[in-house]
């Protein structure tokens, strides 16, 4: 392992429970830098929790979460902030700041973490929004957008700081197939051209197949399968195989 390059993300025996509800039990996996990792699993199995653990928004009860070789459970808040500046996070609920406009949501991380002039920041935010088909929505308020538009705006905000790690929670939920595949293209572009590491939670198997370098299937708090697309198709788990056969998006 010492010869190999440090993986961008590594879970080492992570367990997480909320009160008496055990969500993750001794989960271990790693994601190599510059690859896309797709997390599958039934609803409520802990996919979103896994993403939050990576970002340090939740703390593992036991085990370690390494991001770029650093155990983020041991970082103080300043170091954690430094790490987070390199992480983009699209929340399942998009989590746009509803007190500021869509454009300002995207500009927010730029304003906080860069010292670029206002005009330049607006320009940059606008171009990201355009890439996601939201060019006209700079001044709209998040509450006025549709679910799918909010999702894209959230993705725009996650992409704004050009993260080296992008955590995406159900990017295509609520999107039409065309927009959905456009977003897949964008994610692939981010991975290949920016050498970013992607962790994607999705229920959309066709899109997962397009993007994923590796996949994992979470069930009952454990990774029941992990590997390439082909490996998962041949999984010994009925559930995993069934899932992989699904042609349905979303």
């Amino acid at each position: 392992m010492s010869d190999e390059p440090t993986p961008a993300i590594r879970f080492d025996g992570v367990s997480k429970s909320f009160g008496s509800r055990v969500v993750l039990k001794d989960v271990s996996f790693s994601v190599a830098t510059g690859t896309a990792f797709v997390l599958l699993g039934r609803s409520g199995t802990g996919k979103s929790v896994t993403l939050k653990l990576i970002c340090g928004l939740l703390k593992a009860d036991s085990g370690s979460v390494f991001v770029n070789g650093e155990d983020i459970t041991n970082l103080d808040s300043d170091q954690l902030a430094t790490t987070r500046k390199r992480i983009g996070f699209l929340f399942q609920s998009a989590a746009l700041f509803d007190s500021i406009s869509v454009g300002e949501n995207v500009a927010f991380p730029l304003r906080r973490h860069t010292s670029k002039p206002d005009a330049e920041i607006r320009e940059e935010a606008k171009s990201i929004l355009e890439k996601l088909g939201l060019g006209k929505e700079y001044d709209s308020m998040p509450g006025d957008l549709s679910g799918g538009m909010r999702k894209r705006a959230g993705l725009a905000r996650a992409l704004a700081v050009e993260p080296s790690i992008l955590l995406v929670d159900e990017p295509s939920a609520g999107l039409d197939p065309i927009t959905s595949s456009e977003i897949d293209d964008l994610l692939i572009d981010v991975k290949t051209n920016r050498k970013a590491t992607l962790v994607i939670v999705t229920h959309n198997i066709p899109s997962a197949r397009r993007i994923a370098d590796r996949m994992a299937f979470l069930d009952n708090g454990q990774l029941v399968a992990e590997g390439t697309v082909e490996e998962l198709e041949k999984s010994e788990h009925q559930l995993v195989r069934d899932c992989m056969k699904s042609k349905q998006g979303g």
């Binding site: 928004l57 500046k85 929340f91 989590a95 906080r112 905000r157």
Partner: peptide, 16 residues
């Protein structure tokens, strides 16, 4: 902001 994960979002953007 808490229940719509906006606080998490702030944190994820490296804001205290």
């Amino acid at each position: 902001m808490r229940v719509t994960e906006q606080i998490d979002a702030l944190e994820s953007l490296a804001v205290n």
